[in-house]
């Protein structure tokens, strides 16, 4: 912790600092927001239901899985269970970032956790790593643009989705993996980063091939987390703990 994390910055500039961090997220997530709206309508959702799903669940991969299973006429409770399975990783996010939010009021926590999507978590963790406190204002500055665009994209996708000419040639289907790789790399100074990345990668690929999606996310993640818990911490981590 550095001294300046205790200074009270002006709320608006703090909000804008968060909003600026949302820009790459907006670019990377936009194709998926639009794609979701488009696929929702193709799977029998109304435009309202498509927008409602993005606004209420706010978790891209699980929304796609939900659509897919609903379109395949799977029992509703199984669709719900699958959405839960895809989103289970958020339990880890919540436990991890929650340690940094003890200065928030209970209401701020109730609101804040709703917006805890992958990039939100990663950006907040990076802010912690850079020695600055995660203020509620900064957090919402990051969250609100991402959320607003996500909801609007579902609506635009539902209305105009079929107008996108050739998503593959534009690389749209691969923007998220590139963006997530950037996030993985941004944590490379952490203790045990390389072994954790290696084990999670191998475990998730094996699970993807055998158990299948979406379970590879939880299985791969737990493998990496257990490795992090079991291995003796590196020198850097011991210094941090003291």
């Amino acid at each position: 912790m550095t001294a300046d994390s205790y200074a009270a910055p002006r709320p608006w500039s703090e909000f804008m600092l968060g909003a600026r961090r949302s820009l790459p997220v907006l670019v990377a997530a936009a194709p998926f927001g639009l794609l979701f709206g488009m696929l929702a309508v193709e799977n029998g959702f109304s435009t309202f239901e498509a927008v409602f799903m993005s606004a209420a669940i706010y978790a891209g991969a699980s929304q796609m899985v939900g659509l897919d299973l609903f379109g395949a006429k799977i029992a509703p409770w199984l669709v719900v269970l699958s959405i839960f399975a895809v989103n289970f990783r958020h339990v880890l996010y919540s436990a991890t970032i929650g340690r940094q939010l003890s200065h928030w009021t209970p209401l701020q926590r109730v609101i804040g956790f709703f917006f805890l999507v992958d990039p939100q978590f990663a950006e907040a963790e990076q802010r912690v790593e850079s020695g600055r406190a995660v203020s509620f204002t900064w957090y919402m500055g990051l969250a609100l643009p991402i959320y607003a665009c996500w909801v609007v994209e579902a609506w635009l996708g539902a209305l105009f989705g079929r107008l996108i000419p050739d998503p593959h040639a534009l690389g749209l289907d691969f923007l998220l993996p590139i963006y997530f790789l950037g996030l993985v790399m941004s944590f490379r100074k952490r203790a045990l980063w390389l072994p954790v990345v290696g084990v999670s990668a191998v475990a998730s690929i094996i699970a993807y091939k055998t158990v299948g999606s979406p379970w590879h996310v939880s299985i791969g993640a737990l493998a990496g987390v257990f490795l992090g818990a079991l291995l003796p911490p590196g020198k850097a981590a011991r210094e941090e703990a003291q």
């Binding site: 990783r89 999670s200 998730s204």
Partner: peptide
């Protein structure tokens, strides 16, 4: 928990 970001985000890239 400190391994969470690298562990989870990796599973979104590797497959």
């Amino acid at each position: 928990l400190n391994a969470v970001p690298a562990a989870v985000l990796t599973t979104l890239v590797a497959p």
